[in-house]
């Protein structure tokens, strides 16, 4: 008994390296992904600290300056002001909050629905799988913009409705990806071993299937976030997005585009932030794909 306990104590010192840790190491060797993560981190921190970075509020005009005013360091309007005289830097950073939140929350909604739905369909298989995937096909064929516009018209403009609407549409692809992965994983022998042990179906999905399909899911997730941000910008551009005085990058770009010639800063700053964020997410997604599945490179 004593010997065994000693053995166990030694055991604590030998750590294996899991596939996740391996992937993390490979990701950290990918320069583009690391730079993107740092940049994205900076943007997130700026968005969080937005109210403390400038003396100006996002919804109060500066009555003592031009409408719109060019960037001016002395007045601390580093990005200038918009058509209503509000500080553009604070507005861009508040826009970042909304855009990133929409991106992350809508993607989370799509992740939860998509993974559960896809894993269930793939694992149960047969007729249930067929019916579930045909439903996805039907939903796919509905024109998405039309669907969102209808929602907005019926329920009014509401930020949470945007999360729901975007998430409810984005989960379709996620469900397809997860289902395909589940189909290939469930034929592996370790799933059969779990059946032979007597593990319940639900536990097999949670403990054996989902961890093994997570790789492609994470990659797709990082690619969904920019897609959602872009879609939200597009909705805002159409005037269906967030409501004043709140703003998002889409709204700012839309306003900036109208005054592109007289006040180019109103377009340039939000557009640079949006483009930078999209680049970052895409590079991280690329890096994750290479890291999680090095054979696919």
């Amino acid at each position: 008994m004593k010997d065994q306990l000693n053995g166990l104590e030694i055991a604590e010192t030998v750590k294996g390296r899991s596939l996740w840790q391996d992937a993390m190491r490979r990701l950290m060797h990918n320069k583009a992904a690391v730079v993107s993560m740092v940049l994205l981190g900076i943007i997130v921190i700026l968005a969080i600290l937005a109210p403390y970075l400038s003396p100006w509020a996002y919804d109060e005009p500066d009555w003592g300056y031009d409408f719109p005013g060019a960037p001016n360091g002395e007045l601390k309007h580093w990005f200038g002001t918009d058509g209503n005289g509000r500080d553009l830097m604070v507005r861009t950073l508040f826009g970042a909050r909304i855009s990133l939140m929409v991106g992350v929350l809508a993607t989370t909604v799509s992740l939860l629905i998509g993974v559960t739905y896809g894993a269930t369909a793939g694992f149960l298989g047969g007729r249930i799988d067929n019916v579930m995937m045909r439903i996805v096909d039907i939903l796919y064929s509905l024109p998405f913009m039309f669907f969102v516009i209808l929602l907005m018209v019926f329920f009014g403009r509401n930020i949470f409705l945007i999360f729901v609407a975007l998430g409810a549409v984005e989960w379709l692809t996620m469900a397809r990806i997860v289902r395909g992965q589940t189909l290939s994983v469930k034929k592996k022998e370790f799933i059969e071993a779990a059946h032979a042990i007597g593990v319940s179906n639900w536990k097999i999905i949670i403990r054996h299937i989902i961890p093994n399909v997570l790789g492609p899911v994470i990659v797709y997730m990082t690619l969904t976030i920019p897609q959602v941000i872009l879609t939200e910008s597009f909705l805002s551009f159409l005037g269906l997005g967030v409501q004043e005085p709140l703003t998002s990058w889409g709204v700012l770009i839309s306003e900036g585009a109208k005054q592109m010639e007289s006040a180019p800063w109103m377009l340039i700053f939000p557009a640079v932030f949006l483009a930078l964020t999209l680049f970052c997410f895409n590079f991280i997604g690329d890096g994750l794909r290479d890291a999680l599945d090095p054979k696919d490179r």
């Binding site: 596939l19 996740w20 022998e189 370790f190 059969e192 071993a193 779990a194 961890p211």
Partner: peptide, 12 residues
């Protein structure tokens, strides 16, 4: 099982 590696969950 026949295939020793395939019968073990790679994430555990």
């Amino acid at each position: 099982f026949q295939d020793p590696l395939a019968s073990l969950n790679p994430r555990m």
